[in-house]
């Protein structure tokens, strides 16, 4: 038997409510976290092996970082730009955004030094260019390498299994937890039909559930792996 209020049609006028900033920020954060999966690993047909790409990337970063030669920096930049140009257009903005953000951050951090000593301007520009090259190289590696190939490459370099396991699980869980948080906040917003006087309590609830679920998923996955013969020796793929 339905209660009376459920049988009637309500003429609803929602009370006004401000302060959606917190929700929007968290939704964006969840999207970024769950979007990591989409961003990672689309390998082309004629891609180098992951271990070789990893060596090349590390070598390029070291070379770019230690060199003082403008010519070498320009050569490294040219390599990165050529590789970037070979990617599909839709892959470029994500890599470039991260590189530009890091470049701007480096410029901001270096600005006080330039203000105090104008002679350091050349060094500052060189530093920003180096940051742009290194972050673009990392972005390229992430964009063109499947995650399981990265873990396999790390294994090839005899990095301890527990380190690879931790990196691997962290990466996978960030994606899942981001998706869970995004879904929870979607559910909150769908049921936020008026003025919420307990916004922080709702957000706290979402964070709490995400944390609990993360712990539970971790335990469940470890147990599932044990059932399938996992003996704490992580071999990647």
């Amino acid at each position: 038997m339905l209660p009376d209020w459920l049988k009637k049609t309500e003429d609803y006028a929602p009370p006004s409510d401000g302060g959606a900033f917190l929700y929007k920020t968290l939704v964006s954060l969840g999207r970024v976290m769950s979007g990591l999966k989409a961003e990672a690993g689309k390998e082309g047909r004629f891609e180098l092996p992951a271990w070789l790409k990893l060596i090349l990337m590390i070598a390029l970063i070291i070379l770019t970082s230690v060199t003082q030669s403008r010519l070498v920096i320009m050569a490294c930049g040219a390599i990165v730009l050529v590789r970037l140009a070979l990617l599909p257009a839709e892959s470029m903005p994500g890599i470039l955004k991260a590189a530009i953000f890091a470049g701007i951050l480096a410029a901001i951090l270096y600005t006080p030094a330039v203000i105090m000593d104008h002679g350091l301007l050349g060094n500052g520009i060189r530093l920003v260019v180096k940051v742009l090259i290194c972050v673009t190289a990392v972005g390229l590696f992430g964009r063109t390498t499947q995650w399981n190939h990265v873990t396999a490459a790390l294994r090839k370099f005899h990095i301890p299994g527990v380190v690879i396991f931790t990196i691997d699980i962290t990466f996978r869980y960030i994606v899942l937890l981001g998706k869970l948080m995004e879904d929870l906040l979607t559910a909150v917003s769908l049921r936020s039909v008026g003025k919420n006087n307990k916004k922080y309590s709702s957000v706290g609830g979402v964070m709490g559930v995400t944390f609990l679920r993360g712990t539970e998923m971790n335990k469940e996955m470890y147990e599932a792996m044990q059932c399938r013969g996992f003996t704490d020796d992580y071999k990647g793929l």
Binding site: Y12, A13, P14, S16, D17, A20, L180, D183, L184, T186, A187, V188, S189, L190, R191, S192, V193, G194, S202, G205, V206, G208, V209, R213
Partner: peptide, 25 residues
Amino acid sequence: NSGAKRFHKAIGYLFQNPDTMLFNS
């Protein structure tokens, strides 16, 4: 904001996975 709230009040959505709907204590 007002239009969105009126719309969401009019349409109730039950997710397939209830875990993603429950966040209160």
